[in-house]
Design a binder for these strands. Structure first.
Lengths: 204, 204
DNA sequence: ATTATCTATAGATCTATAGATAATGC
DNA sequence: ATTATCTATAGATCTATAGATAATGC
């Protein structure tokens, strides 16, 4: 990747970053291309070197944000093997991201539902963990796809609650919801409670 | 309400209906006021007699749609007393609405998450049913607000799944998810399964 | 020489309002 | 007489492109 290509990639990334900021702040895509380019500190005409339409840019921005969300969670749960503990950690770390990554959480809130079964971001990894858990008997529920819907929907409701009620204790709400989800997946109640109260990795 | 007021209300309702159609079809609010007025078959300037901005109209349209959604479900579950059966019926009737009320379901999909704890639509009634169930011991879970988040999020994931995969058996997916939700709420597994397979009112 | 970026701009579109018209209440 | 609706339009804004400029590869 030579300097030319790097520069081109930087311009593109500036546009994507600006689009992400706008999505997080306003939630809609009505900003003009002019305003987006200005915020990206990029010449107006450059937009058309990278995207054919505003829709294309915002699609790229959502994918970019959700991919980053998946990576952030991914990194932090490394080393956890128990599928139940993975789900719990995912919920609790997401709640923590309301403070550390508010932009990501807003985009997840507004666009996440349409990506629950996406093949990018957190979804494919969550699906794999659910399948592993079902296969090993840790989870007792029908099929992984339905389970992914339920887990994903509940995670999104956690995000919504976290954003609407910043006064509530985030980790407590997250742990409570994770406990409910684990019971939903067929984990015995006592077990579900214990798993969701374990210390988080890097937060011990 | 005299003829004057009725006529005024009709114009307003035409605008709201057009906005709802646009939300259901495109999911975004970028249509011009001109285009909205045209679709509503209303003079362009009339828009400003009823709304100060496009945002105001679309807010009204979302509220209107979710209120109607709540009423449709409400009517059909009349006579059911068991909170667990109410939740199950709510899920299964929502899935059926993908065919009977596709417009409502699309709006619920795109805007529902922000209204999970709303004081209009289905949310307040669901909250009441959850509280009743907790008080009577039918549900065994911490607090109703957290439960509403989880139930609402799962319902939205059902809507997303139903819209993304119309090939799946809607009632089966809905029953499966309802069963999982009931287990989450602390209903014994056998019981949760049985309740979610009862014949629906008006579908016996 | 090639390619991306930037500036400037034409043409299209949109918003908000002013003024005319039509419908109703009293 | 009052009020909502409609048509027409001024002014602002936006999109897409053309052409000039700057940066890099060979």
């Amino acid at each position: 990747m030579n300097r030319f290509e790097r520069r081109r990639a930087e311009t593109r990334q500036s546009l994507v970053r600006a689009a992400r900021q706008i999505l997080a702040e306003t939630g809609d895509t009505s900003a003009s291309i002019q305003a987006i380019a200005e915020r990206a500190d990029v010449g107006f005409g450059s937009f058309y070197n990278h995207f054919e339409s505003k829709t294309e840019l915002f699609d790229a921005a959502v994918t970019d944000a959700l991919e980053e969300f998946g990576q952030v969670i991914d990194e932090r749960v490394e080393g956890i093997d128990d599928p139940a503990e993975l789900v719990a950690a995912g919920f609790r770390l997401t709640a923590l991201m309301a403070d550390s990554h508010p932009e990501l959480l807003r985009i997840l809130h507004d666009r996440g539902l349409a990506h629950i079964h996406s093949d990018r971001g957190l979804a494919p990894r969550a699906l794999r963990d659910l399948e592993t858990g079902i296969a090993s008997g840790r989870f007792a529920c029908g099929n992984a796809t339905t389970a992914l819907s339920a887990v994903g929907g509940t995670l999104l409701s956690l995000v919504a609650l976290r954003l609407a009620r910043p006064d509530l204790d985030g980790d407590e709400v997250a742990s409570d919801l994770a406990e409910m989800v684990l019971r939903m997946l067929g984990v015995p109640p006592d077990d579900a409670h214990e798993v969701t109260r374990r210390p988080l990795p890097g937060h011990a």
